[in-house]
């Protein structure tokens, strides 16, 4: 997004907030839709008391641990099963069957096995976010030019060196495409795993659940805004890392 579009985006957000505020102050929309002023005030109060940070921190802890697991396991498994064909074909049917399953359906089962705990949530987020990363990595490895691999072999590189120095960098652009989808999913599942199964503890999704039960839509808007903000920020961070690592690649995020 270039500078001009950023400016338009900023204007659009301000206009939307203004319309919302005007509608709310004229009481043309029902009171439960709150208003930007009230939401802002509540957000400030929560920021001062630090509640927002503790909730956001425990949500982030879950989603970032899962994302780290996805990154490591997804890329390693993706490269191994993309490079060594027999391993790839062995696991392919499992991936085909598990990929389209809405992983959230596994929540009741995981809850019975591991309890209503962080383990369950991290596992659920991991299961959802793993497949896009794995599939993109595998695709990326398949797209690596055979000539590169042959050249490395000719120059006497070992299998490990080929994987680390040739295959991994060459498939990085694809890997980042997959990681971006995975990152988005970790935030979706972070919210869902906290909403469903009456969790108790800390978390932004739990904040929404509590506010919902109390009928406090203003607090719901605060948490929704914060989840959106976190999702947006981490996407930007990923794109920045990508731009730094892939300076040689033509299509930068």
């Amino acid at each position: 997004m270039d500078k001009r579009l950023q400016k338009i985006a900023a204007i659009e957000i301000v206009v939307l907030l203004a319309i919302w505020q005007v509608l709310a102050s004229l009481e043309w929309i029902p009171a439960y839709l709150s208003s930007p002023y009230v939401v802002g005030r509540e957000m400030w109060a929560l920021l001062i008391s630090g509640d927002l940070f503790t909730n956001a921190a425990s949500s982030l802890y879950r989603s970032l641990i899962s994302f780290l697991l996805v990154m490591v396991l997804g890329i390693v498994f993706g490269i191994v099963s993309g490079f060594f064909k027999p391993i790839g074909t062995f696991f392919q049917p499992i991936v085909d069957v598990l990929n389209p399953v809405p992983k959230i359906a596994l929540l009741p089962i995981l809850m019975v096995w591991f309890g209503i705990s962080d383990t369950t949530r991290i596992l659920l987020i991991f299961l959802t976010a793993f497949f896009p990363c794995f599939i993109a990595t595998k695709d990326g490895v398949h797209g690596v030019k055979q000539v590169f691999v042959w050249a490395a072999e000719n120059m006497g590189a070992s299998k490990l060196q080929i994987l680390w120095k040739v295959v991994l960098p060459a498939s990085l652009p694809k890997i980042f495409d997959g990681l971006r989808v995975s990152l988005g999913l970790t935030f979706v599942m972070m919210f869902s795993s906290e909403m469903i199964g009456s969790s108790n503890g800390l978390g932004l999704g739990f904040m929404i659940l509590l506010a919902d039960m109390a009928g406090r839509t203003d607090l719901m808007f605060v948490s929704v805004f914060f989840i959106a903000l976190l999702g947006f920020l981490f996407d930007r961070i990923l794109l920045a890392v990508r731009a730094r690592l892939l300076w040689w690649s033509e299509n930068r995020g």
């Binding site: 971006r180 919210f191 869902s192 929404i208 719901m220 947006f232």
Partner: peptide, 10 residues
């Protein structure tokens, strides 16, 4: 990049 499902309760 925003998790839009968070809007569902609203």
């Amino acid at each position: 990049p925003v998790p839009r499902v968070a809007l569902y309760p609203i």
